[in-house]
Structures are given as C-alpha cells and as structure tokens.
C-alpha cells in the first residue's frame, strides 16, 4: 500500500544506513529509489526520469559532492526538483546552489520526515499545476 504511487523520489547517499532509514520512513508514502553513488543515481535517472519528481542528494560523497551531482543531473533533466540533505549545518556551496536556483532548498541531518514529505508534495503539486 503506497499512499502516492504516482510520486517517485530518488535518494542518493554514500552511507547505506542513511538509505535504509530514508526508505523506512518514505516507502509507504512514495515510490523510493535509493542509490549509493552519483553514477548509479545518473543511471537511475536515465531509466526513470519520467517517473522521478524529486531528487534528494547527500552533500559529502567521495566521487563528487551533492551540488556537483545535481549540476550534472539537472543539465539533463531540468523538470525534476532537486534537494540536498546534509550533515553539515551551513555551507557556502549550498548557499550558492540555492541562489543559482539549482536546488529548491536544503535539509539537515537528522532529517525531519514531515518537512521532507511536505517539500515533496509541494513540488509535485507545483509540477502538476504547470
């Protein structure tokens, strides 16, 4: 039983446990795809970009950071809404990404499930309205 089977969310984090708790909290509400690396995430995007409405990415990852990943992803799929979920409070690169409208906003760890759910639903309704 998925509450919103028509909303697919892609979540990217290099830590497996983060993927697990994310999925545990949202897989009853949305279709959740999780990946451990930016490259996997790009691959998933190629496959499911029509269904994916929201992409949430970790900031600090070994190969490329979240902003770099989103730059790449957004270059290809610009209708998707992108967010950062970071363990850091403040980061200038993230601030810039918001100013450049690359991401909608950023969440901090530990995440607030309600805040993220609201953002996803807002993004979806915004998308559908247009």
């Amino acid at each position: 039983m998925i509450q919103h089977p028509d909303i697919t969310v892609l979540y990217l984090d290099d830590e497996k446990d983060n993927l697990f708790v994310f999925k545990a909290n949202f897989n009853r509400k949305f279709e959740v795809i999780t990946t451990l690396s930016p490259n996997d995430a790009l691959h998933e995007l190629d496959l499911h970009h029509d269904e994916i409405i929201v992409v949430i990415s970790d900031m600090r990852m070994p190969d490329m950071n979240g902003v770099e990943f989103i730059k790449r992803a957004k270059a290809k799929y610009k209708n998707i809404f992108y967010y950062i979920l970071t363990g850091y409070g403040h980061n200038e690169e993230i601030e810039e990404a918001i100013e450049d409208k690359l991401i909608e906003k950023y969440f901090t760890k530990p995440f607030d499930a309600l805040e993220i759910e609201k953002a996803i639903l807002d993004a979806t309704s915004h998308l559908r309205r247009n």
């Binding site: 830590e15 983060n18 697990f20 708790v21 545990a24 909290n25 363990g87 850091y88 995440f111 499930a113």
Partner: peptide, 24 residues
C-alpha cells in the same frame, strides 16, 4: 567540533529516523 558535526549528524539520522520508522 564543526568537523565532527558531520560524523555525528549521520548516526543521529539513523537513530532519529530509524526510531521514527520503528514507531510508525
């Protein structure tokens, strides 16, 4: 301490949201 914030926030994420999922 800022450096370790990241290291603490991730496990905190497991605890908080793991517990949340568990309670749900």
């Amino acid at each position: 301490s800022a450096g370790i914030a990241h290291e603490i926030n991730n496990p905190l994420n497991f605890v908080k949201n793991g517990a949340l999922a568990l309670f749900n």
